[in-house]
Design a protein around this nucleic acid. Structure first.
Lengths: 228, 228
DNA sequence: ACGCAAAGGGAACTGGAGTACCGTTATGGT
DNA sequence: ACCATAACGGTACTCCAGTTCCCTTTGCGT
């Protein structure tokens, strides 16, 4: 994952933690002055969060340790992020910014294979693998993290969907194929292995995932419903 | 999930938390006298664990609360299970016992559709859905929970694999098709929706999953490699 | 039945997670 | 350049999760 060093990305979640404080809609800290120090603190904290997630996993994520690693006041971390889920949610918002460029080989089969191998090598990466596991664990616990994760994958999928659109134009798959569904179909079995079955994520598994998605797409399994 | 009321299933994990206690290999509590009270306590605690997971999710699982709900001493829960992950690991061991009967309609398409609908309705169930999310979160955090989850899915998949074997014998799919891979292919996109994409798990999604797995299987995407 | 030891449970203790308070720094608008 | 205040950060406090200690209950072998 690419850490954006500065940048003024939108802050964590628009809706604050609901407070019955009358009339006062306390704006999330970090929104009014997102520049300079605030941005530096955020970058350091998110980097430390990633490191801690990789080392201990989501359930052992300790805000105090994050503060120490980020060389930032403990109070700051509690105030701005509050909980482990809060940290992960913000980390996911940042991760959604970075996007890996898709390949474009001119054949759907090769594009899907490239995508499958990219997912595979990401999940096998000694840093990214544990990080993704942790992030998914967080999303399975906290609804805010879940919607942040959803946004992240939406961006990733949208990046690759054009491959399928082009393939449909070339006639490789039915014209009314849902492009995003095809891309998701490539990832799904690999994530299933990572999280549920525990089978190894080898190259053969990736090839299989791509091949299966392609075959199903050709057979029309991902055609859009007749749209009422 | 069916709660087995008594029964002498093997206890949590064989290897204890490594202790440097010289010579003394402390056997896990609950192994020497698995009957009577011990079993009752376990049943009550696991039921309470499930309830708590459904209500708050894995990250808010509190051992003290579990003890209270199970009407069991707090000390007991800490001694026998120690951590949230420990509880979930044992819960998964119990869940692996219960198995839902597969259908057998005589056509692979209908069998896979039945399986997909079963998975869908399980994940949509107001109790099972949150429970599965929580259990997967735990498995993404703790290696012991992960291997317990793997065992759970291995049992589930093995239950349904015969459908594919029979279909191969009938010639519906290539003879060297890996039956378990086909069954996993049905589940994978549904779990992907639950955890990553967040798209609704409706009947159309289940039908699509079954249809895609069938098409890919027919096309030979799940054939076993030539076996060296 | 009997008794030993395994498992459970009550109560007191403690370290650290999370919070409150308030002084300090430095951002962003004028 | 100036300053109102957003955001940071140190310190002290609180409270409860997790542990320890020890007594009670009860499973299970004989």
């Amino acid at each position: 994952m690419v850490i954006v060093p500065e940048g003024k990305e939108p802050e964590v979640s628009p809706e604050a933690k609901e407070g019955a404080s009358p009339g006062g809609v306390r704006p999330e800290p970090g929104t009014a002055r997102p520049g300079g120090r605030t941005a530096r603190v955020r970058a350091a904290v998110l980097r430390a969060t990633g490191d801690a997630l990789v080392e201990h996993g989501f359930d052992r994520l300790d805000l105090g340790e994050v503060a120490r690693r980020a060389e930032v006041g403990r109070t700051t971390v509690y105030r701005r992020w509050g909980t482990p889920s809060g940290l992960v949610t913000d980390l996911l918002a940042e991760m959604a910014e970075s996007s890996l460029p898709r390949s474009d080989t001119g054949s759907l089969e090769n594009d899907l294979r490239a995508n499958a191998q990219l997912v595979r090598s990401t999940l096998n990466d000694p840093r990214q693998g544990p990080l993704f596991r942790a992030v998914i664990a967080a999303a399975a616990c906290d609804p805010r993290a879940a919607s942040a994760l959803r946004r992240f994958y939406r961006a990733r999928i949208a990046e690759w969907a054009p491959c399928v659109v082009a393939a449909a134009e070339r006639g490789e798959v039915p014209a009314d194929t849902d492009p995003e569904e095809v891309v998701r179909a490539v990832s799904a079995p690999l994530y299933y292995r990572l999280l549920a079955s525990g089978d190894p994520l080898d190259e053969a598994a990736a090839e299989r995932a791509a091949k299966a998605a392609l075959a199903a797409a050709r057979a029309g399994a991902y055609r859009r419903p007749a749209d009422r």
